[in-house]
Each structure stands twice: as structure tokens, then as C-alpha cells.
């Protein structure tokens, strides 16, 4: 592993943690969000991007194989998607209170894993991998922002703090969280379709209920159930927020737990 790659990765970790502290200090001391927060997210995402680029150049392929690969690529892609959301959907910024600590934890987790690159299996050398992973990351990024909003809303509901007064109204944040979930549902559907096309080419079957496929479908179903439940019943808002958090936890389990704890084609084993 290149020293420069490592240096940029650790720098990114440090900046994500700093951004988390700045954000939470703003809430606790009831201060408006400083411009340094946006700057620090940009710097952290850029550093993660440089680290991935250097790793890519050394390994000769993208970050798809090891747990470190996936965590590093998530650090960049989820950070980048959240950065876009932060800049374009200004009223979703409170989500940063939970998104940034989560990205920091992901980065710290990555730092504890084996960073050595491994070879890409031949079945991964296809454009379908890029489409599948690409739409999957967009799904997870949107789900992450919805999770951030739901977690903020739950906290606001249960622990009243003066710092919450600066944030948009509860109903507005709630509606926004569900909008992110609705768009995430579209991207999750695309991820399943592109994954099935790839699986047909790579392993000779489009769906085989392997561990990752099963948990990805469960996530899709629970997300669909949540969207359905919201229009079927007048659920209390907090129940909806808990459902969003559950969907996000399932998505994290699917993306970061199942592929590295099961033996299956998705693991790229020979």
C-alpha cells in the first residue's frame, strides 16, 4: 500500500471527525452552522477521492473487493452524495448531525481492516459492475441522508435542545426524509435489476437467493413496506422515523455485513 494513499485516507478520517465535532458543538452551544463545516466536508471527500485514485492506480482496478475497498469507496461516494445534498438541498443540512459521525465511524472501521489490495475476479471485468455498484451507492447515499434526518427528528422529539430551533420545521424535515426514501426506492430497484443482469452473465443465473441477494431483497421489501405503511395508515411520525432507521440499518447490513460474512459468488472467491 502506498504511503501517500494511506496519508490521504487518514487525513480524510481526521477531517470527517473534525467536521463531526464542529457540527455537534454548533447544536450543543446553539450556534449557527459555520462555513468551515461545508469546507471540511469538501476537503474530507476530496482526500478520500485522492486516496481511492492512488489505490486504483496501484491495484489496477476499482475498490470493489475487500472490506477496506468497500468502506473506502463508501467514504468517498456517500460523502460525495451527502455533500451534493448538503449544497443543493439546503434544508436537509441537519442530517449532517448523524451522517458525519456515521461516515467517521465507517472511516475508523476501515482503518482497522486489512488494507492490502487483492486481484479482481474475471467476472468483475464488466460495465455491469459499474452500473450495479453505481446505482447501489446512490441508493445508500440517499438512504443515509434520510437516516440522518430521521435520527435528528427522533432526537428532537425526545430530547428538546435549544439548538434544534435553528432547524427547519419537523413536518418539513419529515417530508424531506420520505422524499429521499422514495428516490432511494427507485435506485434500489435499479440496483436489483442491474445486479440480476450481471449475475446472469457472471454466474449463469439471474437470481439464486444467495445471502446478499436475499438481504438486498429484504431491504427493498422493507423499504416498500415503509412507503406503503405511510400511505395506508396515519402512523405517528416517530414510527415512520424508526422505519427509515430500520431500512438504513438493513441496507448497511446488506452492503457491509453480508458480503464479508458469507461464502458466495459476490465474495469473488475462485
Amino acid at each position: 500500500m502506498l504511503e501517500a494513499e494511506k496519508a490521504f485516507f487518514y487525513f480524510s478520517v481526521a477531517v470527517f471527525i473534525t467536521a463531526t465535532i464542529i457540527n455537534w458543538a454548533g447544536l450543543i452551544f446553539n450556534k449557527p452552522l459555520p462555513k468551515t463545516l461545508l469546507a471540511s466536508i469538501i476537503v474530507a471527500v476530496l482526500a478520500a477521492a485522492i486516496s481511492i485514485t492512488l489505490r486504483w492506480l496501484q491495484a489496477g482496478h476499482g475498490p470493489f473487493m475487500t472490506l477496506y475497498d468497500v468502506l473506502l469507496s463508501n467514504l468517498f461516494t456517500l460523502g460525495f452524495i451527502f455533500l451534493l445534498t448538503y449544497m443543493l438541498v439546503v434544508r436537509s443540512r441537519p442530517a449532517a448531525l448523524f451522517v458525519l459521525p456515521l461516515l467517521s465511524l465507517m472511516a475508523l472501521w476501515a482503518a482497522t481492516t486489512d488494507m492490502a489490495p487483492v486481484l479482481l475476479p474475471e467476472t468483475y471485468a464488466t460495465v455491469l459492475l459499474w452500473i450495479h455498484v453505481g446505482v447501489g451507492k446512490i441508493f445508500l447515499g440517499l438512504c443515509l441522508t434520510a437516516f440522518g434526518l430521521a435520527a435528528v427528528l427522533l432526537m428532537r422529539y425526545s430530547i428538546p435542545m435549544a439548538g434544534f430551533k435553528q432547524m427547519p420545521a419537523t413536518t418539513e424535515l419529515d417530508e424531506m426524509a420520505w422524499r429521499f426514501m422514495a428516490v432511494a426506492f427507485v435506485f434500489h430497484s435499479l440496483m436489483l435489476i442491474s445486479g440480476a443482469v450481471w449475475a446472469q452473465d457472471a454466474w449463469g443465473r439471474f437470481w439464486a437467493w444467495d445471502s446478499l441477494e436475499t438481504w438486498a431483497f429484504i431491504t427493498w421489501l422493507v423499504l416498500g413496506l415503509s412507503l406503503h405503511a405511510r400511505v395506508t395508515w396515519s402512523l405517528p411520525a416517530w414510527a415512520g422515523w424508526l422505519m427509515i432507521i430500520l431500512v438504513f440499518m438493513l441496507a448497511m447490513l446488506t452492503f457491509l455485513g453480508v458480503p464479508f460474512s458469507s461464502i458466495g459468488p459476490h465474495k469473488g472467491i475462485m
Binding site: 419537523t170 413536518t171 422524499r179 422514495a182 416517530w238
Partner: peptide
Amino acid sequence: TWHYYLKLGSRKIVTRDTDSVRAEHVINNA
């Protein structure tokens, strides 16, 4: 996608249910 585009694209974010309003009320009076 078409459904969400029509449903969400042109609609302003509005208050949805009384529970949320109650939550907001609690916060604002905290």
C-alpha cells in the same frame, strides 16, 4: 420514477400529520 416525478417534483413540502405538529410544538416550547 414517473410517479414520484409527478408527485414530488411539483409539490411543495407540506405539513402531513398532527403528530408531527405536536412534536414541533413540544420543541418550540422547550
